[in-house]
Every structure is written in structure tokens, then in C-alpha cells.
Design a protein around this nucleic acid. Structure first.
Lengths: 232, 232
DNA sequence: CGCTCCATTGAGTTACTTCAAAAATTGTGG
DNA sequence: CCACAATTTTTGAAGTAACTCAATGGAGCG
């Protein structure tokens, strides 16, 4: 068995987990591991034949840049997440590492062949794609009508859940993966508003700020209520 | 060959177009056609085992309803589009007909089997899913930062392109598929703002309103410039 | 220490919303 | 076919949440 795969932290959760050992070895032979430093770009919008990749560790952001140079974050990618537009001739968005990250990358044509050879892989990628679609629609719901405070509350709650190992139970204390500016352009707000509303959330007793990026959930139920969501 | 398929207007563009005649017949045997009147619901958020469907004619909206009963449109579905969350136990969103529509529906388990039997189908659905993902991210970009006028300009331009047969060339005259209220809650605005900004677009000479829902593109280039988009 | 980067705080402005009413369009029954 | 009610759209005036501009306050680093 491929050594890298054997030790891979996402071997049981990434798309390739649906393959058997032989199939996985064959796919691994076509791929290569890559590391990105924080802030480094995997590919940029407009790149032809942008690689596809499974994120092994770290975190990525998918973002666009408008005419005035303002960045907007469209999605976050967590370990075992998949990146890659298999059918578009050019990448639509930038993909940048939020923290130092490890990836398992594939040339598009190799992945395309793998999909044809291993039907289970196509199904696994379809599943991931639909999950990504749902995540994007959730963000769209959030930025559509909610107040600044509700957006922030929902984002913090989501991060708390992502930081937790057990699903559906938020981590009490964790580090925000994004700077104020990144939070702002993910939620369609300004840095100043994010800072002010974080202060409000703290005053209201929902959270406690610990340093610049640390968050402690003092009153998770209150935070969830402020987010205007039923659950998760 | 299946008679319904033979006459199907989207037989060359829908996901099932990747199947050969025999395969398509087998799939058609598991499916059934269904018509929806304008305003009728295909399924609601929370429904278990919601059906999957290919839209044959008409138009659908995918929308959510928040705690206060406000609807938000997350996506539009055009003919040959596919609807259905194959892997989620419950539907996440409502799906409603915008106009009288014809669909080709499948029980989820039947479609699931078809995916396993016909790998090409899985790949076709993956492609559609990634296109849906891109469309949703485009809407997210639009509602994230743009002004009311830019959102409206972009939406009108998109509708003009959707109404046109030739891709990349907008139709000069067409009917809006949405009411003012639907436009508003797709763009995260109010009815009043939509109405006012439509008036502004008309005053500026970009468009001309014809009745309630008719639009004539007087100056497409100006409209596109107002939308703040490069193209598309 | 001084520099840079990021976050916070303050004051004034604005784009959009809210509330309210008029106008246009559509549907319905006589 | 016309009158009348219902629905949708437009228009107006006032209010507000978030933005912009500007200054201050740490934190990290050479």
C-alpha cells in the first residue's frame, strides 16, 4: 500500500476513501503531495487546467476579487475537502491557503480518467459537490437578509462546530481561522462593523474574546438565538 | 425507444442525454412525468425522501423560509436542470414552480441505483452539480457587496442571456420570470427598492419597461457596466 | 525602540429600509 | 362589456443599520 496514503489523516473521510487499496494506490501514483504556506495560492481565477486537490491538513479559502480589488470569500475548505472544477476550462475563483496546508493534488486529466475507471469515485465527488452546494447556499441565506450581528453569531457558531470533533456539539474555546478583514468580506460587512459587533456579542455575554482570534462560547444558546437559525 | 423520451425537448441537454437508448429506456421506466401549476410545490424543506427530477419545461425556484416567514430565493432552475439532494436524508429547501412546468421525476433509490449502474450518469450529475455550485457562488458574489442598482443590472442581464437561444448574446426583449417581490428576496432587497432602481435604470436609458414584467434592453453595454461585471 | 500590521473606537454620512398611500394591473361577477 | 374588488407596483417621506473617514491602541518583529 502507498505509504503516504497509509499515514494520511483523511484517508477514511476524503473522496478517495471509497476506493479499495489497489485503486487508491493507482490514483496515488498519479497524484502528488504539495504543501502551501499561509497566504500562498493554489491557483488563481482564470488559470487554465487548474489542478484538483484533496485537502489533507490546514485550511483554504475560495475567493473572488472584484474590479476594485476587493476580495470576497465564497467558501472555506477543511481537511478531506475537495477542490477543483473538473468541467470548466478555466478556474472561476482563487484558492488560497489560510494556514500552512498539505494537499494531495492531481492533474485534471488524471482525475478525469480515474472517475471513468472508478465509478464509486464519481459518486463520492458528487456527494461532496452537493455538500459544497448546500454550504454555499447556507452562506447565501445568511448574507441575504440577516443583520450584521446575526451573520457574525452564525459564523462564530459554525466555526465552533467545525473546531469540535463531535459533530453537532460546538467547541467551547477555539481560534478564529480568519482575520477581521476576512470575516468582513465573507459576510459582506466592513472590518469596523465586525469589530463593533464582536464587542456587542461580548457585552451581551454570548462570547468572550481571548486575544485577537480566540473565542470562548460563554452562552452558546444565546449565540444561536442571535444567529436566527434553528440549528447548526 | 420510450415515446416520452423521444419527444422530450431536453433529451439532448439533460443529464440523461449521456445514456444510450437502452439505458435511457430503463431509466425512464423507473421515472414518471409530472406537471406543476404555477406556485405549486415539488417538495418542501424537511421532506424525507424528496424525489429527484429533471425539469423538462417551465421554471422552478429553490428557496428557504426564515423564522419570520420571509422567503429567500437561492437558485432558479431552467429546463434540463436537475433537482434533488441525493445524499441528504431531508430536503434542505423548498422547490416551487414559477410557471406551469413539466418534470421527469424519480424516486431517490431508483436514481441511486441508476448512478451505480451507469457511471456516465454519475459524471453528468457531477457536472451539473458543479455548475449549480458556480451559479450559487455567482449569486453570493452579487449579493455580497454590490449596490442595489448593480445587483439589479446583473440579474436583468442574466435573464436576458437565459432568454436568448444563442449563448453569450442577450435577448433584446423578454419577460422577467419573477415578480418584484421575488426579485427582491433573491437579491436581498425590498420590493420598494427594486421598483425604484428599475425606474432609475429606465431613466438612465439602460432599459425600458414594457408592462409589469416586460424588459427591453436599450443599452446592454451600459447595463453590463452598471452591474460591475466583466462579462456573463 | 521604532516600524508595521491589525484591531478598536469615534463621528458623520448614506444607501437602503420601513411605513404609508396612491396608481396601475388583473381578475370576477353581473 | 363594464364595474368593483384584489393584487401588484409605484411613489413619497422619515428612520436606521451599516459604511466611510479618521484617529487611537495594541501586538509582533527586526
Amino acid at each position: 500500500m502507498n505509504l503516504a496514503c497509509e499515514a494520511c489523516p483523511v484517508r477514511d473521510s476524503a473522496a478517495c476513501s471509497v476506493l479499495n487499496d489497489d485503486e487508491r494506490d493507482a490514483l496515488a501514483a498519479a497524484g502528488r503531495t504539495r504543501t502551501l504556506k499561509r497566504g500562498q495560492m493554489l491557483f488563481a481565477a482564470g488559470d487554465a487546467d487548474a489542478a484538483c486537490a484533496t485537502l489533507v491538513s490546514g485550511a483554504l479559502k475560495v475567493c473572488s476579487t472584484d474590479i476594485d480589488g476587493n476580495e470576497q470569500i465564497l467558501a472555506l475548505v477543511h481537511p478531506s475537502g475537495f477542490i477543483g472544477e473538473l468541467f470548466a476550462p478555466f478556474a472561476h475563483h482563487d484558492v488560497v491557503a489560510l494556514t500552512d496546508s498539505q494537499l494531495c493534488t492531481f492533474a485534471r486529466k488524471d482525475l478525469d480518467q480515474a472517475i471513468d475507471h472508478y465509478p464509486a469515485l464519481a459518486k463520492a465527488l458528487l456527494r461532496r459537490s452537493q455538500e459544497d452546494l448546500h454550504a454555499t447556499r447556507s452562506l447565501l441565506e445568511l448574507t441575504g437578509n440577516a443583520t450584521a450581528e446575526a451573520r457574525l453569531a452564525a459564523l462564530i457558531y459554525d466555526f465552533a462546530q467545525a473546531a469540535s470533533q463531535s459533530p453537532c456539539h460546538p467547541e467551547q474555546t477555539f481560534e478564529l481561522p480568519l482575520s477581521r478583514g476576512e470575516i468582513a468580506n465573507m459576510l459582506g460587512l466592513t472590518i469596523e462593523t465586525v469589530s463593533r459587533k464582536l464587542g456587542d456579542l461580548e457585552s451581551s455575554g454570548a462570547i468572550k474574546r481571548i486575544g485577537k482570534r480566540g473565542i470562548e462560547l460563554v452562552d452558546p444558546a444565546h449565540l444561536q438565538a442571535l444567529s436566527g437559525r434553528f440549528q447548526g
